[in-house]
Design a protein around this nucleic acid. Structure first.
Length: 408
DNA sequence: TCTGGGGTCCTAGGACCC
DNA sequence: TCTGGGGTCCTAGGACCC
């Protein structure tokens, strides 16, 4: 009994619900009279340095792709209208979609803002023998009815199969691969279509003459391991056959939080960088406290004028959560990075990871109060500030005061 | 054409401990 | 005396995804 994807109850029933050009759809829903009427619509950064986040299908006919610099997209499709990403609305719609899916499926895992894996294994009797494609179509219609967003669903007994099947489902459709048909299904696709194979790996594959999943499936596993390493090789051997044991896991926990900004023009001035660093630290800090977490590791990221990207990080023995402490650590990391290379800065970012649960504010701070980066008092103040901001808006209290203490 | 912002995972080397 | 092996944590960088 070693057939992969076959549990004791039979094959798993996995679906991937993927929103069609999500950001474009949301932009249209938010502004039906404006963006809603533009067939050639691009959503993305409008600054001189932005990229396209999402392009309408009509605009894709011109060769526009997401991730493409906006300047390039304008060249390819001069008549297109570019609108900014409606961030807040996207987050709201995403939550609404998720809520609908959770009504319809026992297990839902958000893979990104616009993609959700569902595991319907064990629902056969509940759904009175409805086959997976019919279930998928029912879900597609329900999501559209309740949220206004068109989604496509791919399905199969493995995540990777559901994912690749989504390509055939778009737009606004369904494609389910029957159990047992995985290998034949996967063999139709170029290796570039497999999730996890990007430009770098694609190049190494091409160097061995491998371009399609069928090419790779024809090679002995031993050779794949020799060429690409044991892990990569085994992974590839499985994926091109549609084998994927990974599960749909509903209890996902955030592992990192970050905030970064690409500047309109490169910044060389240290004081200006420090001001930006402060803003980023505050943004990360408020998100962290909003999730009732603390971070042990703080990371600062710099992208220099020439696109060289560097980072420095530091791990504390205990988690911190206040803007002041995050900024204090970030500032010394920034100095380290600037000392290593002092060049014009294109992008600056602050990230936190190694996240730990918040402890009650008054507990556990009796020792080493002086030595720690952050005192119980600091945390009490930070949380009070958060409450005021939540009630009266972000601008009710400006960040600078809290961080103006002289001792750093 | 000139490269966003939010993430996850992997690797490799060094420190440190037993 | 002159050098083992394994585990874990940390750091930096890179690949990849949407």
């Amino acid at each position: 009994m070693s057939k992969v994807g076959i549990s004791s109850q039979g094959p798993r029933r996995i679906l991937l619900a993927d929103c069609d050009m999500f950001f474009v759809q949301v932009a249209r829903l938010e502004d039906p009279e404006g963006a809603g009427r533009e067939p050639l619509l691009l959503v993305g950064g409008r600054s001189n340095r932005g990229v396209i986040t999402s392009a309408s299908y009509a605009a894709r006919e011109y060769g526009v792709r997401s991730g493409m610099p906006t300047s390039r997209a304008r060249q390819l499709c001069p008549e297109a209208v570019v609108v900014p990403v409606p961030r807040g609305a996207c987050v709201e719609r995403s939550r609404a979609i998720r809520a609908v899916l959770e009504d319809l499926s026992p297990v839902v895992q958000a893979a990104s803002i616009d993609e959700f894996y569902l595991d319907l294994t064990g629902t056969e009797r509940l759904f009175k023998g409805e086959d997976l494609a019919a279930t998928a179509d029912r879900i597609r219609m329900t999501v559209h009815d309740r949220t206004g967003v068109a989604v496509s669903l791919g399905g199969g007994a493995q995540r990777v199969v559901a994912k690749v099947a989504t390509r055939l489902a778009k737009p606004n459709g369904v494609h389910v691969v029957p159990p047992g048909g995985e290998a034949a299904f996967m063999s139709r696709f170029p290796l570039a279509a497999l999730p996890g194979i990007g430009p770098a790996f694609l190049e190494r594959l091409a160097a061995k003459g491998l371009r399609t999943a069928a090419d790779a499936a024809a090679v002995e596993g031993e050779w794949l391991a020799r060429w690409f390493g044991p892990r990569r090789g085994a992974w590839l051997w499985e994926r091109v056959r549609g084998i994927d044991a990974s599960e749909v896991d509903a209890r996902e926990r955030r592992k990192s939080i970050s905030s970064e900004r690409t500047f309109f023009a490169d910044i060389d001035d240290d004081e200006e960088l420090e001001r930006r660093l402060l803003e980023l630290s505050c943004s990360v800090g408020s998100q962290l406290r909003g999730k009732e977490l603390r971070a042990r590791t703080i990371t600062v990221k710099i992208r220099d004028y020439d696109f060289r990207t560097r980072q420095a990080g530091g791990t504390q023995p205990d988690g911190i959560e206040t803007d002041r402490a995050i900024f204090a650590v970030a500032l010394s990391l920034l100095h380290t990075l600037r000392h290593r290379r002092n060049a014009g800065v294109r992008l600056l970012g602050v990230g936190v990871s190694n996240l730990v649960q918040q402890a009650p504010v008054t507990q556990g701070d009796l020792f080493g109060e002086q030595a720690t980066l952050e005192t119980a008092r600091d945390r009490t103040i930070a949380r009070a500030v958060d409450r005021i901001r939540n009630r009266y808006g972000r601008e009710a209290l400006r960040p600078a005061r809290v961080l103006d203490r002289p001792e750093e």
